[in-house]
C-alpha cells in the first residue's frame, strides 16, 4: 500500500517535529521533516505531499507574539502554494505553535482565508504551564477527529494559548458550523474553569477546524499521547499500548489514503 506523504514544516525554533513524525509514521504515513527554506526556494514542492503538519515549538522565538513571524512568512512567501494545497482538498494540522501559526496567518479563519479573526494570547495565569487536560471532543465535522471518544486526554505546554475572538458573531458561526473540535473539560466532559481550562480560553476552546473539517488546529499535544507509557498515571491505572492521540494521526493518514 502506498503510504500518504506528510510534510512536517520546520523552521528556527521548531521543536516538536521529531515526535510528530513518529506519530504519523506509527499511524501508517510517511512523514518528512522539511525546513521552510526548502519550500520557499522551490527545492521542495509542497504539492507532492498530502498532509501538511505545523508542529509545536517556538518559531522565531515567538518574538512579537507566538507563531506570528512564521505566520507572516507563510502569508507572504508561501501564500499561493498553501492556497493551492487547501483548494486541492488536502489536510493541514497545526499543533500548539502550529495552531498559533494557522490562526495568525488566517489559514484557520471564519471569514476568509488569510484574514485573521481569531487569536491565541497570554494565558490568564501569566505563565507557561505544562499540564494534562481532558478534552471534550466533537467527532462529527472534523476529518481528524473521527471516532474519537467523547473525552480525550492530552497535555498542554504553552504560555500563549488563550483562545479569543474578534466578536461574538464569530463564535456563533464556529458553533453553528460545528467547527469547535476540542474543549477543555473535566474527566467527565463538563466544561470547567482553571486549571481544567488551563489558559482561560473563551468557551474552553482548545481546538477548531475549518469549514471543510480538513484543517485542524489545537493547543494540546496529541503527539505526546501516542503510547500508553506517556500517560501521567499509567503506573497506577495500567499500561495500555497506545494513547488517545494516535487516532488523530491515523484519521489523517487514512483520509489521505482514501481521498488524496
Amino acid at each position: 500500500m502506498v503510504k500518504p506523504k506528510i510534510i512536517i514544516l520546520r523552521t528556527a525554533g521548531t521543536n516538536c517535529d521529531k515526535e510528530t513524525k513518529f506519530a504519523f509514521d506509527l499511524a501508517g504515513g510517511k512523514a518528512e521533516l522539511v525546513h521552510i527554506n526548502e519550500i520557499a526556494s522551490s527545492r521542495i514542492d509542497l504539492s507532492s505531499y498530502q498532509i501538511l503538519a505545523i508542529p509545536g515549538g517556538f518559531s522565531y522565538g515567538d518574538d512579537v507574539a507566538a507563531g506570528k513571524i512564521l505566520a507572516n512568512e507563510l502569508t507572504f512567501k508561501l501564500k499561493e502554494q498553501i492556497t493551492k494545497f487547501i483548494k486541492q482538498g488536502k489536510l493541514i494540522i497545526g499543533i500548539c505553535n502550529g495552531f498559533q501559526v494557522l490562526v495568525k496567518a488566517g489559514i484557520l479563519s471564519v471569514d476568509s482565508l488569510f484574514k485573521q479573526d481569531i487569536s491565541l494570547i497570554n494565558n490568564d495565569s501569566g505563565k507557561f504551564e505544562d499540564r494534562w487536560t481532558y478534552l471534550k471532543a466533537q467527532n462529527k465535522k472534523c476529518v481528524w477527529a473521527r471516532d474519537l471518544p467523547e473525552v480525550v486526554y492530552f497535555p498542554v505546554a504553552h504560555g500563549e494559548g488563550k483562545f479569543v475572538l474578534d466578536n461574538k458573531k464569530v463564535l456563533g458561526v464556529l458553533k453553528e458550523n460545528g467547527q469547535i473540535v476540542f474543549q477543555y473539560s473535566n474527566s467527565k466532559g463538563t466544561l470547567t474553569p482553571y486549571p481544567d481550562n488551563p489558559n482561560g480560553s473563551l468557551d474552553n476552546i482548545a481546538g477548531i477546524c475549518d469549514k471543510t473539517g480538513r484543517i485542524l488546529g489545537l493547543m494540546p499535544h496529541p503527539e505526546r499521547h501516542i503510547m500508553g507509557s506517556q500517560h501521567p498515571r499509567w503506573t497506577r491505572e495500567g499500561l495500555k499500548k497506545y494513547g488517545d492521540g494516535l487516532l488523530i494521526f491515523k484519521n489523517g493518514v487514512e483520509y489521505a489514503r482514501k481521498h488524496l
Binding site: E19, E129, D130, R224, Q230, T235
Partner: peptide, 15 residues
C-alpha cells in the same frame, strides 16, 4: 515544575 516543558520530545515515561 509546571513552568518547564517536561514532555517535549515525547519520551516521558515517569514525570
Amino acid at each position: 515544575i509546571r513552568q518547564y516543558d517536561h514532555e517535549v520530545q515525547g519520551g516521558s515515561v515517569l514525570k
